[in-house]
């Protein structure tokens, strides 16, 4: 329990730091701006209470907003992700349901499951974020292209990061995806 708490706190700090110091400054062709901080919400334990999820989402988004001068944009997007998470998890549940204290990482859940989960959630996040930012329909398709492009890049970064820095779990626990 305590270990999990510390693990998540450290993950929160690292991801926010990475996002604010490095990724917010990527300005490539005006289209690409990956957001990986929502990995924090995605990797919270399965049994996290729903209410707590929303609060954590709100706080995470607000911290990113503070550094990026964007009012409540990121908070709105991250709260939407936190709201969608229980439903998406139910949708993607393995045949026997989730085991207690199962970690939502590719090493236990399989790469296919993990990638699907990430793409769905990142799409929700980016969709809310970019459309709230533009806030008009006249640029609908350009914005949609931007959402799809960034979902691809963000998910790629998150999976790479998870394999590079996520601690490998015991091989026996592995479920082939």
């Amino acid at each position: 329990m305590i270990v999990q708490l510390i693990q998540n706190a450290v993950r929160f700090l690292l991801l926010v730091f990475l996002q604010v110091v490095l990724l917010n400054h990527i300005q490539w062709s005006g289209f690409v701006n990956p957001y990986v901080y929502l990995l924090f919400i995605l990797l919270l334990p399965v049994e996290t209470p729903k209410g707590l999820l929303l609060v954590l989402g709100f706080v995470t988004g607000l911290v990113i907003d503070m550094f990026g001068n964007s009012g409540g944009l990121h908070a709105a997007a991250t709260v939407a992700v936190a709201f969608a998470r229980p439903g998406i998890l139910r949708l993607l549940a393995p045949r026997d349901g989730y085991e207690a204290e199962m970690r939502l990482v590719p090493q236990t859940m399989g790469l296919k499951w993990f990638a699907t989960y990430l793409v769905l959630m990142t799409f929700i996040h980016h969709f809310v974020l970019f459309y709230l930012e533009v806030f008009r329909f006249s640029e609908f398709f350009l914005t949609f292209f931007k959402v799809l492009l960034n979902v691809g890049i963000s998910v790629l970064l998150m999976i790479m990061g998870q394999y590079l820095f996520g601690r490998a779990v015991n091989r026996n626990e592995r479920i082939l995806g």
Partner: peptide, 30 residues
């Protein structure tokens, strides 16, 4: 759960609206 979600989103929208207002006294900025 849903009502709490709506409440938080309303907070966010309020913050965004404030941010767009030209001369605001917002605390969520750099």
């Amino acid at each position: 759960f849903f009502i709490f979600f709506l409440l938080l989103e309303a907070c966010c929208i309020y913050l965004i609206a404030q941010n767009n207002h030209f001369q605001r006294a917002a605390f969520v900025n750099s």
